[in-house]
Amino acid sequence: MSDASINTKAVDAGYGDAGFGDYFALLKPRVMSLVVFTAFVGLLAAPGAVHPMIGFASILFIAVGGGASGALNMWWDADIDAVMKRTKSRPVPSGRIGADEAKALGITLSVFAVVMLWLASNVVAAGLLAFTIFFYVVIYTMWLKRWTPQNIVIGGASGAFPPMIGWAVATGGVSVESVLMFAIIFVWTPPHFWALCLFMNSDYEKAGVPMLTVTHGRRVTRNHILAYTLVLAPIAIGAGFTSIGGPIYLAVAVVLNALFLIGAFRIWRRSEDAAVADKYRVEKKFFALSLFYLFGHFGAIMAQAALAPYGIGGW
């Protein structure tokens, strides 16, 4: 083997011999960690026991499916990612991996994850995973993202499916509880993302992505954040009265929703001048709280499920 084995064409083009970490980065590991966490909570909260090995493998295949859709998103959005400060160092826009490679890896892993989840658990869970990948890649990435400021509202559904898939792994079906877990993430996504948009606006503007802040202005975005938070609170607290809830969940949900509503109200009340003056302090605080909000709710559901065998918690 000589140096001729180095693909000089690819090197000249700037890609072709990326490291292993670059391929891993293509799967959006941070998004994957959220997928793993919420799918695991869905699996744990579901009635009935699953063999630990089957549970572990199922969560892994759900994560691979989520990662595959991330790779396909990076393939399609390479032009947008190259413009935005937050995303320009990703493997495709930075040139470490070719867009075609990302597409091939994404398609292969999507098929692999769905088939393996089917074999490991059941057809409902695999079907939901296939629909999630389709929804994220085709409906959100290819269609809505560049077309409507409602992109994040409808597209947010793809991020809301993992707990439903986890639930389906254990039960083989869908129920009120799994739909409520879906609804929490679905309605939480817009205020979470729009808060980010309020202080990262220039990035989206530059990339030509029709975010609400760009198309309808910041005042309307602030109104929307409050409206969605008002819708979210009864859903999140209401989940506490189903079989996934209990006193621990309910206490956490009441406190977190009160804090979230206060935060949204402060954002709504503020003028743009005040926000610029303190460098979007309230918006940044609300964004940080939104991360804690989701973790808190799903952590509480997990706590309820974990404590149930000891007779603590649960209705």
Binding site: G19, F20, H51, M53, I54, A57, L60
Partner: peptide, 25 residues
Amino acid sequence: RFGRNVGLGVVLGSFVALVFGLTIA
């Protein structure tokens, strides 16, 4: 390239172990 090959080898080895564990389960 060596790092990538080692990484792929570990992934494939883990997959074989996973399928074995899944079959036993």
